[in-house]
Nucleic acid binder design. Structure first.
Lengths: 205, 205
DNA sequence: GATTACTTACCGTCCGTTCAGTAGACTGTA
DNA sequence: TACAGTCTACTGAACGGACGGTAAGTAATC
């Protein structure tokens, strides 16, 4: 049996060996899923990278798909948390939208591999479809913000709100394809640049 | 033996049965690769969708990877053709950049499945790495255009040119994730919107 | 001796690919 | 017109290997 989070035991009961680190397993699994693709990543390779055996993984996780579910849950949880923060719920719509964009960029950078995995989903299994559904709800919440900011007069009204949202988040999400922490661009600078380009464009003002 | 294009014969020699349509095979294969992911698409499913057998496919193509190569070649060829057109080689850098952006959007729409496949590559095999290399060359050509447009004074200079290019093409490439031909937005309108948002931003002018 | 956290060995399935055989269309010769 | 020969374009069955997952046993810790 698995617990609600999918971890099999993990805690420190009284007897037995040292507990191990589920987070480390997830880190390595997520990195491999991103590197090879979920389907192309074998449990054997995963075990090798973890320095254990395949069956050792199955002691803690019920299936390969369970690893995927746990990883996606983390990314989605972090993104959803942005929408719940005060900056996203109070104030002018324009400021709330900018807060959410900045928050999304931060989550993207802080949990880069997890969000990368989320953004590459295809929906081939129940786990993937559920994650896509949660992602769609996030997108809708942002779309509502865009609508409000438009009504408020902060955003241009000559382009469809849905298209605006999609182009906006297309730009944001593409960050996972090239940004690597530790480079010349700090997360805060990146967020500044994204907001600046997204709201004011690349042309000279 | 395969020909240079990877097709095995295809033409009409004198004897034998009706030739068949390689383009149709590629269409179906590309659609399936996009739907399930390349690794997760089995030759059996492909054969089923084509209404033939697995081994019939192997008469025309040497391997599953060959199908991938042919599909990627098509997408890359179309993108590279944009850079060779007159609008991309003569005139002000700003106009050339806008021409290339518009051309890229058009290729994206016209060959949506093929470009989608290209944009989701991971680089797990030689075929994928070669395609990524060609794509990188395309990106570099665009980056040079961005540089020129900046020097010319048409683009803002407060943001790194590389970051600008990436955000610009992040926005453009994200189109494959949501745009579907036949919807309310025509390809030309889409190109207009992309250029407008990319160059002038989503904020009210 | 109870419980945890494994290890080694293995199982059934599916996948990409191959191979032997063959039906159908055409050509060349009589 | 007949029919052997040649070529294309397949079919159906099979193969080796890899993969996700399991079963049974065991060392470490309480």
């Amino acid at each position: 049996m698995t617990s609600a989070t999918g971890e099999r035991r993990g805690g420190n009961g009284r007897a037995g060996r040292d507990p191990y680190d589920l987070a480390a397993v997830l880190d390595i699994a997520t990195a491999a899923f991103n590197e090879f693709g979920y389907e192309a990543t074998s449990m054997g390779v995963l075990a090798e990278r973890l320095g254990t055996s395949k069956s050792a993984i199955y002691y803690h996780v019920t299936s390969k798909e369970d690893l995927l579910r746990l990883a996606l849950d983390r990314a989605l949880g972090e993104l959803e948390r942005v929408l719940e923060q005060e900056g996203a719920t109070t104030g002018k719509a324009d400021a709330r939208l900018r807060f959410v964009v900045r928050g999304a960029v931060r989550v993207l950078v802080d949990d880069l591999p997890y969000v990368t995995l989320l953004l590459r989903l295809r929906g081939n299994s129940a786990v993937e479809r559920e994650a896509l559904e949660r992602r769609r709800e996030f997108d809708h919440a942002v779309a509502r913000l865009v609508d409000e900011a438009r009504d408020e007069g902060s955003l241009r009204a000559d382009i469809d709100a849905r298209t605006t949202t999609r182009l906006l988040f297309g730009m944001i999400n593409s960050i996972v394809e090239w940004y690597r922490p530790g480079g010349p661009l700090t997360p805060d600078q990146l967020a500044d640049d994204v907001i600046s380009v997204a709201f004011d464009g690349v042309a000279r003002a």
